[in-house]
Amino acid sequence: MLIDWPGVRARVLRLTPADHTWRELEAPLTPAELDAVQRQLGVELPADYQQFLLHVGRGGPGPFSGVLPVEHVDGEWRWRVDQDYDPNDLTNLAKPFPLRASDWRVAEDIENDCPDPFTFEPRNDYHDEWERWHDRHETTMFNPRRTHGALYICHEGDGLGEWLIVTGPERGNIWLDHRVDGRGMTPAWLPHHRRVTFGQWYLHWLGTAEGGRTGDRSGGPRRAG
């Protein structure tokens, strides 16, 4: 799919901000800045995301909170996450993203094992069992290896977010991160698209916004499964 990225910037600039959460469209990166980003990361970013950075903006409005901007701070390039916890581990982007399909069944199995407080007497036994379950949940679902090769580019709020896969067979695709509510990580999809690239993800949102539904800040692809 050939995308007129300079034209995309013009289309975004014509939009009316949806609400107070609207992220301003920032200046694009220069080619020299993009080269510096990729040298630091040790990887080449997916082609359509490179074109977005060069011709649309280093960050700006998009699904949910918008596309998180890349910035140069204290001599290093990083993505401005605007929350207390930064999910990105930029040192492991060259390692392949490990998932090939949704892991919602793994998440569901762990959620189903969550202890029921009404089956424990005394209550201290429940708390001990819950702590063991919670440790298993965190070490399994939030193991840092699960997001190797992935770049966190959008947060939906309440711990939910979206990743652009940079390395591995899923390179270039958007994955949804709903681990905090027990749904695991899963590839985004649209009708007639079992996988969604960055370009498809962004243009789907833009088309929704241009259709007058800017009050719906998501406009993003759906969760598979």
Rank of each mutant, 00 (worst) to 15 (best):
M1C: 07
R9I: 00
V12E: 00
L13Y: 00
R14P: 01
D19K: 02
H20W: 07
A27Q: 13
T30L: 09
E33K: 08
Q40S: 12
L41D: 06
E44I: 12
D48H: 11
F52H: 10
G57D: 00
G62Q: 03
S65F: 01
V67H: 00
P69N: 04
V70A: 07
E71M: 09
V73K: 13
W77R: 13
R80A: 14
N92K: 13
L93T: 06
P96S: 05
L99R: 01
D109C: 06
C114N: 06
C114Y: 01
D116P: 10
D116Y: 01
F120L: 07
E121T: 13
D125W: 01
H127L: 15
H127V: 11
D128W: 01
E131S: 12
E131P: 02
R136K: 07
H137K: 08
H137V: 03
T139N: 06
Y152I: 08
H155W: 15
G157T: 09
G157K: 11
I165N: 09
I165M: 09
T167N: 08
R171G: 05
D177A: 01
P187R: 08
P187S: 08
A188D: 04
H193Q: 13
R195C: 01
W201R: 02
W201Y: 15
H204R: 12
W205D: 03
T214I: 14
S218K: 06
G220Q: 08
A224M: 12
